[in-house]
């Protein structure tokens, strides 16, 4: 099947949950390349969570419904793989880390998934040390989860997922429970994982100002359909994004509004410092 750099592909895909007559996803055609950092946005109830469930196989294996078209992950049809097999390829980090941390120490929690897939002790140790180091949580190794701060819990949750060495990491509103400083640090960490390990990352997030510096692609869903997809720097210029519930960060909204006044910027400045520098440059 697909062996190109395309790691996720939806072909003419539609889905409705059983008992519902209206499809929650309609005619989705989508391709995500290996190493992409994708921001998935859209109004609440537009089908974002459903789309994610189609990638990690919860749909169709655990949620029943009318499944039309194909979803291909890492070259294989999701419907032909079971959830366990997919879990080694697709890591999922929930909004609330409490939903996925349940062992009595950080170490035990991280190795839980590895022991379940029957890895050898030696390999488990190597991976454990690797994730503890990669996420900067070596000092938390023997701590019980209840002694951790929310930011630390979020890192432990991601460590448990990352230890499985997935090719794809999916995060559903990962910063919503974190204070702004911790949230920013966490997003920068995701950017690092994406760059260092070529990990494909998909993040659902409403506070997109946090992500504009790390994500390269964006998908906008509305009423179960894709209304925009492509490079973040291109799509973010579209003034209609607001209509789809996408909160364009103020610094970008300003550039979009100034463009209407014929004040054109050659590129999109994603952060305030660069934008302010450009304003000052024009005043010289």
């Amino acid at each position: 099947m697909e062996t190109l750099a395309e790691i996720i592909k939806f072909i003419n895909f539609s889905f409705s949950y059983s008992g519902s007559t209206t499809p929650i996803l309609k005619n989705i055609n989508l391709s995500i390349e290996e190493g992409d950092f994708v921001l998935l946005v859209g109004p609440s109830g537009c089908g974002k969570s459903t789309l994610l469930r189609c990638i990690n196989g919860l749909i169709p294996h655990l949620y029943n419904g009318a499944y039309e078209g194909e979803v291909i992950v890492d070259g294989e049809l999701v419907k032909n793989k079971n959830v366990n097999e997919l879990a080694t390829k697709v890591g999922f980090v929930f909004q609330n880390p409490e939903n996925q941390i349940f062992m009595f120490s950080v170490e035990k929690d991280i190795v839980f998934g590895l022991e379940n897939i029957g890895l050898e002790r030696n390999e488990i140790d190597i991976r454990l040390k690797w994730v503890l180091h990669a996420l900067g949580i070596e000092h938390l190794r023997y701590k019980p989860p209840y002694e951790l701060s929310d930011g630390q819990k979020q890192r432990v949750a991601i460590a448990g997922v990352l230890a499985m060495k997935p090719k794809i990491l999916i995060l559903d509103e990962p910063t919503s429970l974190l204070d702004p400083r911790t949230a920013l640090d966490f997003i920068l960490l995701l950017g690092e994982l994406n760059k260092k390990f070529g990990l494909t990352i998909i993040v659902v997030e409403h506070r997109i100002d946090l992500l504009t510096n790390v994500a390269n692609k964006i998908i906008v869903l509305d009423k179960g359909e894709i209304v925009f997809k492509g490079l973040l720097k291109e799509i973010i210029k579209n003034k209609n994004l607001n209509l789809y519930g996408v909160g364009v960060p103020p610094v970008i909204a300003l550039q979009n509004n100034l463009r209407d006044e014929d004040i054109i910027f050659d590129e999109v400045y994603l952060n305030v410092k660069d934008f302010a520098k450009e304003i000052k440059r024009r005043l010289i």
Binding site: V41, G42, P43, S44, Q95, E173, S176, L177, H206, N242, L243, G245, V246, G247, V248
Partner: peptide
């Protein structure tokens, strides 16, 4: 949390 731009 969980609210899109329009809802905000």
């Amino acid at each position: 949390v969980g609210q899109d731009f329009l809802q905000k």
